[in-house]
């Protein structure tokens, strides 16, 4: 494993060093003391392991495709935004817009995620061990979002084909979001996914798998329909 000591280095220096190490064949790199710098580990396209030994700022692991990223702290806004593949795990909390617009890969937040989690997600898997803020899943197109705790208002608003699972309370469903009974396959999927990424959550008496709610699009906003006045009044 190679270490990068971040003290005294700029974002550009750190990212350049990551890329240099990867180009030299290094597959396991640890960034020591990242002191919440923004834009660390952006656009890494190789299957390498990156560990941030502390909290990170905005857009950490943004636009990545392939790496396994571990953040041993919390993350700022836009964690893993537009990611295409790989795994990004945050031990602490994630700021606004975590996993926004991801098209693939897995984002795991062990604690809470702030507002606009998974906005416009187009694929992939998002798992939050704790709660999430308002507008999570807004306009989510594809992929799966699992929130083990509670959600904020306007949850899953205006979605397309994304599927959400919530273990706790939903403060308010967003426009055109509906709750559906999870299927047996859904529960099996939840069990295996949480066992893999958040093993401490499995068997949690406060949010047993069987109590998870499934939220999908009611599809009333997919096409203009003047007869759906109440839905469209909010959306137009």
């Amino acid at each position: 494993m190679a270490d990068i000591i971040c003290d005294g280095k700029t974002t550009r220096d750190i990212n350049a060093e990551i890329k240099r190490l990867i180009a030299n064949g290094e597959t396991d790199i640890c960034m020591r003391n990242p002191v919440a710098r923004h834009n660390l580990g952006v656009a890494i396209l190789q299957s390498v392991k990156l560990t941030f030994d502390g909290s990170v700022g905005y857009y950490c692991a943004g636009m990545v495709d392939g790496p396994t990223v571990e953040i041993k702290g919390s993350a700022g806004w836009g964690l893993a935004e537009s990611m295409m593949g790989g795994t990004v795990t945050v031990e602490g909390n994630a700021g606004n817009g975590a996993a926004a617009s991801i098209r693939g890969g897995t984002v795991v937040v062990h604690s809470d995620a702030a507002s606009r989690l998974g906005v416009s997600m187009k694929g992939g898997l998002i798992i939050v061990g704790g709660n999430c803020g308002y507008m999570a899943g807004f306009m989510a197109q594809r992929g799966t979002m699992i929130v083990c705790g509670d959600t904020g208002e306007a949850f899953a608003d205006s979605m397309y084909e994304a599927v959400c699972f919530v273990g706790g309370n939903i403060a308010e469903l967003g426009n055109d979001a509906i709750i559906e009974q999870p299927t047996a396959e859904d529960l099996t999927f939840l069990e295996s996914t949480l066992s893999q990424h958040l093993p401490s959550r499995v068997g949690n008496s406060q949010a047993p798998i069987r109590n998870f709610k499934k939220v999908v699009s009611g599809r009333k906003l997919w096409n203009f329909d003047k007869d759906e006045r109440s839905v469209w009044r909010e959306a137009l």
């Binding site: 923004h38 905005y58 943004g62 606009r116 306009m139």
Partner: peptide, 23 residues
């Protein structure tokens, strides 16, 4: 959408632009 999913105002946009440069 009218708003970007991962930034709102000009202060955030400074960081977003840096992200695009890093990418």
């Amino acid at each position: 959408p009218a708003r970007h999913p991962d930034f709102l105002g000009p202060d955030d946009m400074i960081i977003k632009i840096e992200e695009l440069r890093e990418a």
